[in-house]
């Protein structure tokens, strides 16, 4: 479904992603595991196309020059230069890190804004699905998103991505800043999303322990480079992963 070939991303002279290649098959849950500054967010921004917009903005304000090399191929089509909004139309939807919601809009309004590409009926259906997946949100339908807890905002952010009815859902650090109990809830919700919608999911995450068991395939990256690949179970058994991510 998605293939990345020899991706390299430079922020000025700093190499954030170094010759990275990966494949995502339809229906899979694929994980990109890496510690801080491994290049996860850069990879997700490249897959979603947001980095192209970032590159233009930096260029225009004379900031850091962002150089992108390599290819992103979606169902045989090279989308490396396709802007983010067009990739969303293809069904590639990114849920950015740190629960990006519209703080001054209510939960329902947030979902409605996110689903503007869809008909009202579709949005209503997916909204109900979101409330099924995230029951915590149900009682806060008309509450401003900025007043929700961090975990609830994360759930809402995932819900907003779902309203677009993605074919490929990119989740960038969905567990960031959440308590272990809340992390479990979000992981459970991601699992339900997959079961109920069959959407292909790519998760970039540094908390490997809760994520690895649900992965069909995982990539471990460090300093922008691919260091390990394998199924979720293989990676869980890998001594290097155990040492680096489980502290064992």
């Amino acid at each position: 479904m998605l293939e990345v070939k020899g991706l390299m991303v430079f922020y000025e002279n700093a190499l954030a992603v170094n010759d990275l290649s990966l494949k995502v098959q339809a229906g899979q849950v694929v994980g990109v595991i890496g510690s801080n500054s491994a290049g996860k967010t850069t990879l997700m921004n490249t897959l979603s196309g947001l980095i192209l917009d970032q590159r233009i903005k930096e260029l225009r304000k004379g900031g850091e020059r962002i150089t992108i090399m390599g290819k992103v191929i979606h169902e045989g089509q090279d989308i490396s230069d396709m802007p983010a909004y067009e990739r969303v139309r293809l069904g590639i939807v990114l849920c950015r890190e740190r629960h990006p919601v519209f703080p001054d809009s209510t939960v329902l309004e947030n979902l409605a804004i996110a689903g503007h590409l869809r008909s009202k009926v579709e949005v209503a259906q997916t909204t109900e699905l979101c409330f099924d997946l995230f029951p915590n949100l149900t009682r806060w339908r008309r509450r401003k998103a900025g007043f929700l807890s961090g975990g609830e905002q994360q759930m809402l952010a995932i819900g907003m991505a779902l309203v677009v009815r993605p074919r490929l859902l990119l989740l960038d650090e969905p567990l960031l800043g959440l308590s272990p109990a809340m992390q479990e809830k979000v992981v459970e919700a991601i699992r339900s999303v997959r079961e109920k919608t069959g959407v292909t999911i790519v998760i970039a995450e540094q908390f490997a322990r809760p994520i690895l068991p649900m992965l069909d395939f995982g990539y471990v990256i460090e300093n922008g480079m691919l260091t390990l690949t394998g199924s979720g179970r293989d990676l869980m058994e890998n001594p290097e992963v155990k040492s680096a991510y489980f502290g064992l």
Binding site: F10, N13, D19, S21, L226, T229, D234
Partner: peptide, 18 residues
């Protein structure tokens, strides 16, 4: 397990230095 693309390929990019 490791799957790095090792094919040699040279491209150019613009570099900014002090």
């Amino acid at each position: 397990m490791a799957a790095q693309d090792t094919s040699k390929q040279v491209t150019r990019r613009r570099e900014r230095l002090d």
